[in-house]
C-alpha cells in the first residue's frame, strides 16, 4: 500500500508517518529514506532529533538526497519505504547540477523516481508539506518551486491508496482509510 501524508509544517507528520510505516510493514523490513541534505547546524540538529525520534522503531536509514528511486537498488523492493520529505527532495533536485540555476527537469525527475517506488516497493509512505495557503506574493523562483511541489503532491495523491492531511497531529482522510 502507498500512503501520502501532507499538512502544515511542524505538526507531527514525520512521527505520524513512522507509526503508519511500522503498521504497514507488519514484521517486515523498514527503510527510512532521508532526503534532507544538511547545510548547517540547524539542519543537523533537526536530523538528530528525527533520528532519536525513530530509534528503536526498526528503521534502516538510507540517506538519499537525489534520484529517490535508487533506494530500491540499495534495499531491494521487499519492505516498507518511508520517504521524508518530498519537499527536500525537490529542492535537492532543483539544484543538482546547474550551479545555482534551478533545473527545469527537476519535477519530472522526481516523478520518475517516485513512480518507481509506487510501482515496485511493497509499501511506501510519502511525507510532503502543505505550503499553498498563505497571503503572500512570492518571487518567481519560489512560485515555481511551489507549483512544482504541488505537481508532485497531486501525482502522489492520485497514485496513493490513502491520502491523509495532518492537522495538529490529527488525521483527515482525503482518500482511502485504515485503522490507525
Amino acid at each position: 500500500m502507498n500512503v501520502l501524508i501532507s499538512g502544515g509544517c511542524k505538526n507531527g507528520k514525520s512521527a505520524f508517518a513512522q507509526d503508519i510505516a511500522v503498521k504497514l510493514s507488519g514484521g517486515g523490513r523498514r527503510f527510512y529514506v532521508a532526503t534532507m541534505i544538511p547545510y548547517d547546524g540547524e539542519d543537523r540538529k533537526r536530523i538528530e532529533n528525527h533520528i532519536s525520534d525513530r530509534s528503536g522503531m526498526g528503521f534502516t536509514t538510507l540517506e538519499i538526497g537525489r534520484d529517490v528511486g535508487s533506494c530500491l537498488d540499495i534495499a531491494g523492493e521487499n519492505g516498507t519505504f518511508l520517504v521524508d520529505s518530498i519537499t527536500a527532495l525537490l529542492l535537492n533536485e532543483l539544484f543538482s547540477s546547474h550551479g545555482g540555476e534551478a533545473d527545469p527537469e527537476a519535477a519530472e525527475r522526481c516523478i520518475r523516481g517516485l513512480d518507481r517506488i509506487i510501482r515496485q516497493a511493497e509499501n511506501a509512505v510519502f511525507v510532503t508539506d502543505y505550503i499553498y495557503s498563505d497571503a503572500f506574493r512570492y518571487d518567481e523562483f519560489t512560485e515555481s518551486y511551489r507549483s512544482s511541489l504541488a505537481r508532485l503532491d497531486r501525482f502522489l495523491a492520485k497514485e496513493c491508496g490513502a491520502v491523509i492531511e495532518l492537522c495538529a497531529g490529527s488525521a483527515i482522510f482525503h482518500k482511502g482509510g485504515f485503522e490507525l
Partner: peptide, 22 residues
C-alpha cells in the same frame, strides 16, 4: 478562489487588507 488564510499575518498593509477582503 484561492485559500490564502493559513499563513502568518502579512507584514504589508495591502496584503493584510487583501487577506481580510478575500
Amino acid at each position: 478562489c484561492d485559500d490564502i488564510f493559513c499563513g502568518v499575518v502579512p507584514l504589508g498593509k495591502e496584503l493584510r487588507a487583501w487577506r481580510e477582503t478575500t
